[in-house]
Design a protein around this nucleic acid. Structure first.
Ligand SMILES: [Zn+2]
Ligand SMILES: [Zn+2]
Ligand SMILES: [Zn+2]
Ligand SMILES: [Zn+2]
Lengths: 144, 144
DNA sequence: GACAGCATGTTACTGTATAACATCACATTG
DNA sequence: CAATGTGATGTTATACAGTAACATGCTGTC
């Protein structure tokens, strides 16, 4: 799926959820798409300013928050960053693997493995919400 | 284990690891202990200022970093905060459960369950580091 | 006492995020 | 059409989080 296809699918996805992927939001999403891996809000802001002149933090944070809410992006707490979710269609619980060395990110499904954690939590009288785990480690390339 | 016992054990723990729980570090740890659940660095800073007058961010961040390094505290990325680890003695991988409603925190061991995730990651050519998961959900009290 | 090594103090800054309010675009409806 | 409501965006200012760089102090060793 290339960037254009993604954007189109994203637009449809939003419509189906009863909201609009406006021009601004689309532009922000596009800027995030351009990067491989984690992108920071202020990086997006800088990019946005290059493209449309003046722009302030709230502009970009509002768009990012929207995109996260729609499931198009995931927030990476540990890095104060954002990554694109490339399978936003499906209701998923994934594990986002962030390489400590190169910063690359991959997302793998862990519905099954998560049930193990869910059981443990339940045993401690705690009900886990829907999760997107964010774990760090070393990718294939950096492991050597 | 009450606060005093904890501090004493922490002191010993540091010594065994070849470093010192200095007065300042101890004071910071004590301030964190006073709170239930997650504490923010700037909250600790404010508390510290009340007790010893002037104090700047680096003072508190250095102490917090040290305490995390020694395993006495865990950092909670999603909240930019810190929590006390009450079983720092053992080498552990835990799951930190944060209640979405009341903010209380509990830590449970998940060494076993984590191996499930580790396998999934490995299958994706990714080697997980030592983890302390931070998951959200609803605690016993707030679930009703 | 001179030095090394670490802990702490101090200043100034960079980076991250949000509150609050103004304005705009567009749809609904009297 | 004018009036109104609603959600998106613009704007300003500020709060919150974290660090660099350098100065100073403390403790032990030689
Ligand atoms: Zn995803
Ligand atoms: Zn890597
Ligand atoms: Zn712990
Ligand atoms: Zn609760």
């Amino acid at each position: 799926m290339n960037s254009n296809q993604y954007l189109q699918a994203a637009e449809l996805h939003c419509e189906q959820r009863g909201c609009k992927l406006t021009a601004l939001r689309k532009q922000v999403l596009e800027l995030v798409l351009r990067h491989e891996g984690v992108v920071k809000a202020y990086q997006v802001l800088a990019d946005l300013q290059k493209e449309r002149g003046a722009a302030a933090p709230p502009t970009v944070y509002r768009a990012l928050d929207f995109l996260v809410e729609q499931g198009l992006l995931h927030r990476v707490d540990a890095l104060n960053g954002f990554i694109v979710c490339d399978h936003f269609e499906c209701q998923h619980e994934s594990m986002i693997l962030v390489c400590e060395t190169c910063g690359k990110v991959q997302e793998v499904d862990v519905m099954a493995a998560l049930n193990g954690l869910r059981d443990v939590a339940q045993a401690a009288d705690f009900t886990l919400s829907h999760q997107n785990l964010m774990l760090t480690g070393l990718c294939k390339v950096c492991r050597v």
